[in-house]
Write a protein that binds this DNA or RNA. Structure first.
Lengths: 245, 245
DNA sequence: GAGTGGTCTAGACCACAGT
DNA sequence: CTGTGGTCTAGACCACTCG
């Protein structure tokens, strides 16, 4: 363990534990802390950063939850072997693509107010047959079709239907309307594409599609979106990191 | 908020924060705390349980990470709307099926020591062409074929090949050999099944399969398993809950 | 026995939401 | 303004691993 610590900015609004975890993460991805490398114990690390032990612990725990570090009582904290994997976060497909310079583009197929079916009403926690916004979009990346996305939103967010849905992601537009997205529950599966789906996606009839059903909730626990997405299996997959606590 | 608290067992080895989080989770799944219900603030909850605030916070945080609760500064803690979803944990398919009384059964297709290919050697962090254990199994649930599972294990775990792989899950056998599984990095996708895969799974040729590639690490950060699984899309899907921190 | 992480306490100050 | 969660401190004791 050489000095992997820079100064902390105690006047910054960024929490100290986050500043520390970012510095350690940087040390890992840059190779200064290679696979299997052992970190010093919490006490001495806390001393070196000038922090209390709980704060140092939280910084380390952030990286354990990300799957970058592994800890064992009586042994210590080590960097996990294997390639660094991209973090799994609550981001939108649009933002992911934009960040990866994949030139996302969207075609709006359907944009209408419909009465809620029983299924949609149940998930969005609104009365059956009350009005909800239905969207159906075709998402491109690098000019190639990537996914068909069907979404339902409660009535008070239906003005999103008048926004520039072809130029921005759904999450981004919701955030701009003061919706603070907190929890997304997803079910990932697969199916054979229908004739229409495959036509839209430029796949052969019956090609396998990766599907994702998602219910999204805001910081009040209120359902704010339900979606059914179908991705070209040849172009897309999901990454998930699981940690045993 | 009525009294949803029972006594805590301070002599138990079960951590207090876990006892509390389980009681709250029970109150939610039983309906005593319905969707949208507000919890008392941390201080009074801590008082009622006779705990310090950090311990109470940790109990609540457990459920926030599970997607059951939602918190907002200046507002409070509320139960998320929507149906209670099964927790996503680092468990094996075999254990999941057994717990759901799905009568898991396994047929061993391949059980051999092979030289590691470059890909396998890289993931398992062993020399290329060194010996690794290769397994290929067909997993049934309720008598129906469910998944084809191909796995590679480093040489020092190759005695698992002599274990009762048809009667127990791989994770269970690894644990029995003192392997403490900690981190699993998965990539979930879809593909059309090959002729052989579909034959084994009892699907029509070219049926869509849900695929999962997984690298597993133990509590020292060492790679202990790499697997490529293919599930019948008509029978299986993954659940994932994402939380914005 | 020495060293590690896991748990827990009793305070403190702050940022933000809603009135 | 009041109430909430978010952060941070400086200790303490325990359980576990390993030599």
């Amino acid at each position: 363990m050489t000095d992997l610590f820079m100064e902390l900015d105690r006047s910054s609004p960024v929490p100290l534990y986050f500043q520390v975890s970012q510095q350690i993460e940087q040390a890992i991805s840059s190779g200064r802390l290679g696979p299997g490398a052992r970190l010093d114990n919490e006490i001495s690390l806390a001393d070196r950063f000038g922090l209390s032990r709980p704060t140092m612990r939280r910084a380390i725990q952030e990286l354990v939850d990300k799957g970058l570090l592994v800890r064992k009582r009586g042994v210590g904290t080590q960097v996990v072997h294997g390639q660094v994997s991209r973090p799994v976060e609550l981001t939108s497909l649009y933002d992911d693509l934009a960040r990866a310079n994949q030139a996302p583009r969207t075609t709006l197929l359907v944009n209408e107010i419909v009465p809620a079916s029983e299924v949609v009403a149940d998930i969005l926690d609104v009365p059956v047959r009350s009005q909800v916004l239905r969207l159906r979009r075709l998402r491109f990346a690098n000019g190639e079709p990537l996914a068909i996305m069907e979404n339902y939103l409660p009535a008070d967010l239906s003005d999103i239907g008048r926004a520039d849905l072809e130029e921005r992601g759904l999450y981004q537009l919701m955030r701009a309307r003061g919706v603070h997205i907190r929890v997304a529950k997803q079910r990932i599966g697969a199916k054979a594409g229908t004739t229409e789906e495959c036509r839209l996606l430029g796949e052969r009839r019956g090609s396998p599609l990766l599907t994702m059903d998602r219910a999204t909730h805001d910081d009040r626990g209120r359902p704010v979106e339900w979606g059914h997405h179908a991705y070209r299996a040849s172009q897309y997959s999901f990454e998930v990191t699981l940690v045993d606590h």
